[in-house]
Simulated assay, not measured.
Amino acid sequence: MSHLDRLRDVFRLALNLPADADVDGLEYRSIPQWDSLAHMALIAAMEDQFSIMIDTDEMIDMSSFEEATRLLEKHGVGTATV
């Protein structure tokens, strides 16, 4: 499973979305499920899944699935292609 597929699964689980939900275009607060509390759960789930530490600035800047892929690339996880 690619890192992007793993990231999609993290988004679906953290945001309580269906297993087949398209998350590639998601942006923070674009759906009711992605509120500030879910954002914290999403960050924690990403840290666990990819064994990375996300700092406060990165947490604030991660406002979309696309930004999350860039964040993973910054932390050396795979290649960010959506």
Rank of each mutant, 00 (worst) to 15 (best):
H39W: 14
N16W: 06
T81C: 05
D9I: 05
Y28W: 09
D57C: 01
I54F: 06
D61H: 00
Y28F: 13
S36V: 11
L15A: 03
D35N: 15
M40F: 09
V77L: 11
E73Q: 09
Q33F: 04
M46K: 01
A21N: 02
E67F: 10
G25M: 14
D48R: 13
A68N: 08
D48W: 04
D35T: 07
G78S: 11
G76L: 10
P32K: 10
F11R: 07
R8E: 07
H75V: 05
S30H: 14
R8C: 08
D22Y: 06
Q49S: 08
A68Q: 12
P32D: 01
S64E: 10
V77H: 03
L71T: 01
L4C: 07
I60Q: 01
E27K: 14
A19T: 03
R70T: 02
S2T: 15
D61R: 00
P32I: 01
N16L: 12
L7N: 03
D20G: 04
L26G: 00
V82E: 00
F65V: 01
Y28G: 00
D35I: 11
P32N: 02
Q49N: 03
F11T: 01
R12Q: 06
A44M: 09
D22I: 10
G78D: 14
P32V: 02
H3G: 03
R6T: 11
V82W: 12
L42V: 11
A21W: 02
D5S: 08
V77W: 09
E47V: 13
L42H: 05
R6A: 06
E73V: 04
D48M: 10
M40P: 00
A14I: 14
I43K: 01
D55T: 01
G25P: 12
I54V: 11
H3Q: 15
P32R: 12
A45H: 12
E27P: 09
L13F: 04
I43F: 12
M59T: 07
G25N: 15
A80S: 13
I54S: 00
M59K: 00
E67N: 10
M46D: 03
E73W: 05
R70M: 03
H39C: 10
A38E: 04
H75N: 07
H75D: 09
D55E: 05
D55F: 01
E27N: 03
F65H: 04
L17Y: 04
M59N: 01
P32Q: 03
V77K: 02
V82M: 09
A41P: 02
L15Y: 06
D20E: 08
M40A: 14
A45G: 08
L7A: 01
A41I: 10
M59E: 07
N16Y: 07
D5L: 09
E47G: 03
T69H: 05
M62I: 08
S30I: 10
S64D: 11
P18H: 03
M40W: 01
R8K: 15
T56F: 05
A44I: 08
M59I: 08
L13T: 15
L13Q: 12
G78K: 07
V77I: 15
S64N: 11
D24L: 11
D48A: 13
M1H: 12
L4Y: 05
S51G: 11
E66G: 06
G78Y: 13
M46R: 01
T69L: 05
S63A: 04
